[in-house]
Design a protein around this nucleic acid. Structure first.
Lengths: 339, 339
DNA sequence: TTGTAAGCGTTATCAT
DNA sequence: ATGATAACGCTTACAA
């Protein structure tokens, strides 16, 4: 181990700790020669300024937290990619927190982070649309927060969302245009921000087309593949939808599986469109029509906004809302007459 | 902000800082009443012990680093899932470092972590099999390291790998059994641990079957989808393989795309098997035969090993190698007569 | 059971 | 350009 600290290094060099410290910072009140000597010796002895001591002293960590509901999800993996990429270029590191869709954990994470562990946080919420009282005094947390995707509307922080309502509306209209009359909407939590918004787009598109809204076609699913397979199969058997709009990717996969096992043909027997940022949607059988969210971009944007705030001396309490565009990628799974 | 520290809290309660400190640790040399009073007040004032001060004092961080070559990769996402899950249950957090396949960055990360930032590291290497001199004195880094998947053979730390050689051998044999005689091997870096081992399995299976090894069928690819498409298309045009073994998932996707655009039928014209932990391989068109690595399990195992080391008072310098089994999931993409 | 005080390894301020 | 010293906020002997 032989951990070497600034004192021993200073001693070896017959120099003071302050000078050593200076050598590592880009200040110019140090003799270039001296700096060179110090850095060389440091490399030789493998000295690294202690991160915790520095942070304690400087009151910042060059670290940002990413709080997300789950990790087993292509969408959030891509979010992390985006955040990581931007953070890295600014010399920041990322710390990952997964709430497992539990708002208690979310709150605990947020609270525990008030200890200065990170300089800021980007988060996709786990709670329901209105359930965020713990964030009432966001300033008191002592760090900037950026919300993305699953947001709490009333919290006064910058937010990044996609145009979920429109996307959902258009995807539904697209299914209708392709002959669907009984479209099911699959959702994990219809009370939560995105599940709710997407449902509204679906509902309004049906209304606009004078198609009755059937409660039984709005299906609450879970986070378990097995359970969802059962739920979806049952729903199909009982309600015979001719179209399906999946509010998250995973539900489309389950539907594909169910259709395979029920020997239902997509899109002949049932058409499908799904919110998804899957890159290989076109390789599926059949190619899946997706509402493609720019997940990586969302991550990048969230990180950029956060870094901006961190760079800003006295950041105003903005709560701007940034809307990124999703793209409806029409593929065979939703097309009439593509067979 | 109004950050409150242990002193002010102590003052408010008319009590000493040590007592406050004790209230937060599970020690019993404190009056339960006092503790209760303290914790209540702390909650009220939203006091959180400063993480960096604690860490500095205790010389540990309850944080582990995950160093991986890339994030835009289903395999590594699953690794992170596994690590995160295990870490969380032990109260650890994870810090992510992405090297972009650059061994310089890997070395810098490792070096910088010697500053006590994390208690331990799990890593999948970015360098080539022999290129790890910087790890010669692993003890001097001052933290335990676990290597997984892309390992450096000679480094004396615990390693977790899958039975790549056998998997590759069997997958190749499987392609041969299904009538392939000109099997191409797609690899990103054939000098690197896994690319190399997997190639060996491929080569030996060919030899065993007295099929000549053709250099031109061993194809170096890159990390770019676009470039790979070009490379693979060119290779197919020139060398007319009737089978393909992809050493990483991404190369199989590119092959699917190329086949689509070249109007080649899988598996009729060309059969494919790939190393991949993709969960929806069976939904592809056609379903993709995979050598399915237990990515999440690998992550879990790596984390468990690390935590064991961390719990151990004086960990012996073990360098055990754990081999997890991959599973050959035979699907249509590699089958003769499944059409 | 509680308090006092030293120290974890830095960096910033002030002197020199 | 360099050095001495006092924080940063916490934990833990040791003392009471």
């Amino acid at each position: 181990m032989a951990k070497i600290d600034i004192h021993t290094l200073a001693e070896v060099l017959n120099i003071s700790t302050s000078t050593v410290s200076r050598a590592f910072r880009n200040t110019n009140d140090i003799n270039p020669e001296t700096r060179k000597r110090i850095l060389e010796k440091a490399a030789e002895l493998n000295y690294q300024p202690n991160h915790y001591a520095s942070n304690l002293r400087e009151q910042k960590s060059k670290t940002i937290a990413v709080i997300i509901p789950e990790l087993a999800n292509n969408y959030f993996s891509q979010i992390i990619q985006g955040v990581e990429k931007v953070a890295k270029t600014a010399g920041y590191h990322i710390l990952i927190f997964v709430t497992d869709d539990d708002i208690q954990k979310e709150r605990e994470f947020m609270r525990s982070l008030s200890n200065g562990r990170v300089d800021g946080v980007v988060m996709s919420a786990s709670g329901e649309a209105t359930d965020h009282s713990y964030l009432n005094n966001i300033e008191s947390f002592g760090f900037p927060l950026i919300l993305f995707d699953r947001i709490y509307e009333e919290v006064g922080v910058p937010k990044i969302i996609t145009d979920d309502y429109n996307s959902s509306y258009h995807a539904t209209q697209h299914l209708i245009d392709n002959g669907c009359e009984r479209i099911a909407y699959l959702v994990v939590n219809k009370e939560q921000s995105i599940g709710k918004t997407r449902m509204q787009g679906y509902v309004d598109a049906l209304k606009k087309n004078r198609i009755p809204i059937r409660k039984r076609l709005i299906v609450d699913c879970t986070n378990s593949y097995e359970e969802n397979a059962v739920i979806i199969e049952h729903m199909i058997e009982v309600n015979h939808p001719d179209g399906i709009l999946a509010s998250v990717e995973r539900l489309a996969f389950s539907t594909y599986q169910v259709c395979q096992s029920m020997k239902l043909q997509i899109p002949q027997d049932i058409k499908i469109a799904a919110f998804s940022s899957l890159e290989i949607a076109s390789l599926l059988n059949p190619p899946l029509t997706t509402i493609k969210q720019p997940a990586i971009k969302i991550g990048e944007k969230a990180a950029s906004l956060l870094l901006e705030k961190l760079a800003d001396e006295n950041p105003k309490q903005t709560h701007q809302e940034f809307v990124l565009e999703s793209e409806l990628m029409i593929r065979d799974s939703s097309l009439k007459g593509s067979y």
